[in-house]
């Protein structure tokens, strides 16, 4: 091909469409409007939660039980915290083990591919189905809704989140660290426990926090499992109080005072979740954590 042939090629971008600069500007404006709309929705949703939540907030909300007068949700707040704690105890170790396997041991064969697919599918399973599974596994044999069954359902959700976060964080540890450790005579396990995990500690912690933030707001998997409780009962073998279940119950009622409580509860819940998420974002800024 000589220079004349190149000149003979028509330019694919110019010429045909004289208005293309205006189209370009128009699309730019459209994309900006899309962003503005998305942010406006976020602003409106948060503004309503903030204004209504603070408007109806009372000290009794944090100190009293649902059936006391004045009403509160002390037990639900504590219940959600414990439930999420139990779920973390069940789900975090399994998730971390999965992440360690995928980052440190997995080869390129079919098993790695299968494990990756299974974790992706588990992450994509509708959470209400995980509630159904926990119901069948725990509630049916024991003939009673319980905190354990709710924690199990939440743990199912946490496993793939923690697994993926751990895997990504472990992969961020530079490979020369592993080589240097091996060069000093360390075994694979020593390298893992004394070099890689300490280096990835902050990242894995934030991954766990993301998982916690995610399950703290879950309602659907608790409907058939934790069930809710109006008493200050924190025994996991009994029906368990939860903030999200209480919001659901009160939002369905015609009683204005209960609806007001639901708004306050949503504000408390969203504040907890967003603080966790924002903390994670600021800790690992610049590094990639896949929250979704």
């Amino acid at each position: 091909m000589n220079a004349d042939d190149i000149k003979a090629q028509p330019n694919p971008f110019a010429g045909r469409n004289p208005g293309r600069r205006w189209i370009s500007r128009g699309v730019m404006v459209l994309c900006t409007l899309c962003t503005a709309l998305a942010l406006a929705v976020l602003f409106v949703v948060l503004a309503y939660m903030g204004i209504r939540g603070i408007e109806y907030m009372t000290p009794a909300f944090f100190t009293n039980l649902p059936l006391q007068s004045p009403e509160g949700m002390r037990n639900c707040i504590i219940g959600t915290v414990i439930l999420v704690g139990l779920a973390s105890v069940l789900g975090v170790p399994v998730g971390m083990l999965c992440g360690i396997y995928m980052a440190e041991y997995a080869g390129k064969g079919w098993f790695t591919y299968l494990a990756q697919l299974v974790m992706d599918l588990l992450a994509g399973t509708p959470t209400i189905l995980l509630g159904v599974i926990a119901w069948q596994l725990v509630v049916v044999p024991l003939h009673q809704q319980s905190g354990w069954s709710g924690a199990l359902a939440l743990a199912f959700i946490m496993v793939p989140i923690v697994a993926r976060a751990s895997e990504e964080m472990l992969r961020l540890v530079p490979h020369p660290h592993r080589e240097a450790s091996a060069g000093l005579g360390a075994s694979k396990a020593q390298t893992l426990f004394m070099v890689i995990l300490p280096a990835a500690k902050a990242g894995i912690t934030t991954g766990i926090m993301l998982g916690i933030a995610r399950v703290a707001g879950e309602t659907a998997p608790l409907l058939f499992t934790a069930l809710g409780n109006d008493q200050a009962v924190y025994n996991p073998s009994q029906p368990y109080p939860s903030l999200t279940l209480k919001i659901w119950q009160y939002s369905q009622s015609a009683e204005p005072a209960w609806r007001h409580q639901a708004w306050t509860a949503v504000l408390v819940l969203v504040t907890m979740v967003l603080l966790f998420t924002a903390a994670v974002r600021f800790t690992v800024r610049g590094r990639k954590v896949n929250a979704i």
Partner: peptide, 24 residues
């Protein structure tokens, strides 16, 4: 910041969207 704010939308629990949806 825009990226961060959009991701905050993902962090809001579904029950919170539900309450907002049903009353607002």
């Amino acid at each position: 910041p825009v990226s961060f704010l959009v991701e905050l939308l993902a962090a809001i629990p579904s029950i919170a969207y539900g309450l907002w949806g049903c009353f607002v």
